[in-house]
Design a protein around this nucleic acid. Sequence first.
DNA 1: CTTGACCCTGACATGATGTAAAGGTTCAGA
DNA 2: TCTGAACCTTTACATCATGTCAGGGTCAAG
Lengths: 136, 136
Amino acid sequence: MNIGAASRASGVSARMIRHYEAIGLVPAPPRRDSGYRDYGEADIHRLRFIANARDLGFPLEEIAELLDLWSDAGRASGEVKRLALARADALHQKAKALEAMRETLLDLAAHCQGDTRPDCPIIDRLAGEEEAGEGS
Amino acid sequence: MNIGAASRASGVSARMIRHYEAIGLVPAPPRRDSGYRDYGEADIHRLRFIANARDLGFPLEEIAELLDLWSDAGRASGEVKRLALARADALHQKAKALEAMRETLLDLAAHCQGDTRPDCPIIDRLAGEEEAGEGS
DNA sequence: CTTGACCCTGACATGATGTAAAGGTTCAGA
DNA sequence: TCTGAACCTTTACATCATGTCAGGGTCAAG
């Protein structure tokens, strides 16, 4: 199977397949005489695993750990669960930070007329020396 | 004022001050005979404005727009408000996406024993071909 | 054999920031 | 005055995951 076919079968772009190979996340497949990479079913499964983990927000470094656990038939599920919960927490922290920024922006916008006048608390806030000031 | 002093006064790292100059976000300051950059108060104000906007999640491209609006005394606040609301919405979308990932991970983890046994729905899900399946 | 679709590698770009290297400047203390 | 620490200069490379482009080789169908 060509890299193009593997890409379509796995949902991972050809560019990324090559990248994952370069960083050792997937094994280098055999080459045909032409130099073309030749993938098998196992490779597709591995790529799909990576795509799924990536879609769940795992960074490649943790995906590497998950792949090890996946191929370890005697793994303890506790380790997998630990990784998942840690990732969930990291995602939550990030989301909270974004929502906090959003709240601040909405708060500022609520006090801005938004008309043709130049007065604007948003600009005033950005121009200020401090960045705290959540007090209503 | 040296770049180091400007950095301490504005909260922007020297590295970033040079970067902002390179991309045209801040004007190139005059140099002393030694070649050292020499900053004034107005430069510090501008850098602080950038730092504040950056802390609110604005990308540099939008910060450039805000800087233009800031220096335009006859600006309409409507434009500023529009940018702020658009940014708030973008942050919200991002946060929602992260939270959705988190929910999926928590859901999977809840069904994982997390003990020494190898059975693990998290791994099963990652190994699967589909990525939908929020159905409880 | 030609054409178009594919593959190869390598390089550059993103966005915002850090770090390191290699060299010049400034200032304070001995 | 000399010296060393702390600073400044530019340039380049790294991050993370991904896209895109260029220049060249390959494959399959007509």
